[in-house]
């Protein structure tokens, strides 16, 4: 019988330097990483207006026209309003608790139109938009509390959708008038 006498090479890979390699990579990613979540106001733009795709007709009472000039002065349906009252007025307009003929027929039909001029600084425009979004946030929170007994942010996807259907966010950004 022949006995194979051979020194077997060890089958293991030397893993002692693996930690060093991993450290090197770790430091690289540590340095390059930026953990900043982008925050902002999300919007959905309407499709472009063409001749075969005109904007849908809207009843006057369902439309809240907010005009802002470049100094930050606001009018709501031709009534001049201080900026800190915008939110309260909007909530009244959308909910219309006394079923007034002047205000929105239903929260679903309410449309807020925001219009400004070309010279308006972005800051003022965003402040205004923030107020409008804020009004909807208050309303949605209210509806969430009524229906599910929880804040809007704590609802799950389906529940959020139900609340969103009660208060759909219909904000229209109007084109500024050409000079």
């Amino acid at each position: 019988m022949l006995l194979k006498k051979r020194e077997r090479e060890s089958a293991e890979i030397n893993g002692s330097s693996m930690a060093d390699i991993a450290f090197l990579l770790l430091i690289f990613f540590l340095v390059t990483t930026t953990i900043n979540v982008d925050t902002g106001i999300g919007m959905v733009l309407p499709p472009p207006v063409t001749e075969d795709n005109p904007p849908p007709p809207i009843k006057e009472r369902n439309l809240m026209k907010i005009l802002v000039n470049n100094a930050g002065l606001v009018t709501m349906d031709d009534e001049s309003t201080p900026i800190d009252e915008v939110q309260t007025k909007l909530i009244e307009f959308i909910k219309n608790p006394e079923a007034s003929e002047e205000l929105a027929a239903s929260p679903q039909a309410a449309i807020v139109s925001l219009k400004t001029v070309r010279e308006t600084p972005y800051r003022i425009y965003i402040d205004m938009l923030d107020e409008v979004i804020g009004a909807y946030a208050v309303l949605r929170n209210e509806a969430a509390n009524q229906n599910f007994g929880r804040e809007y942010s704590q609802l799950n996807q389906e529940q959020k959708k139900i609340v969103d259907d009660i208060y759909p966010k219909k904000i229209s950004i109007a084109e500024p008038d050409p000079e």
């Binding site: 999300g42 959905v44 733009l45 010279e119 800051r123 425009y125």
Partner: peptide, 27 residues
């Protein structure tokens, strides 16, 4: 924050034409 709305609306008009409707105003 101090940029004028006019340029932004021109850009938004282009975005509408490009069918990119989902936007976000970073703040």
């Amino acid at each position: 924050e101090s940029s004028e709305f006019g340029l932004l609306t021109d850009v938004q008009e282009e975005l509408k034409q490009a069918q990119t409707f989902r936007i976000n105003y970073s703040t």
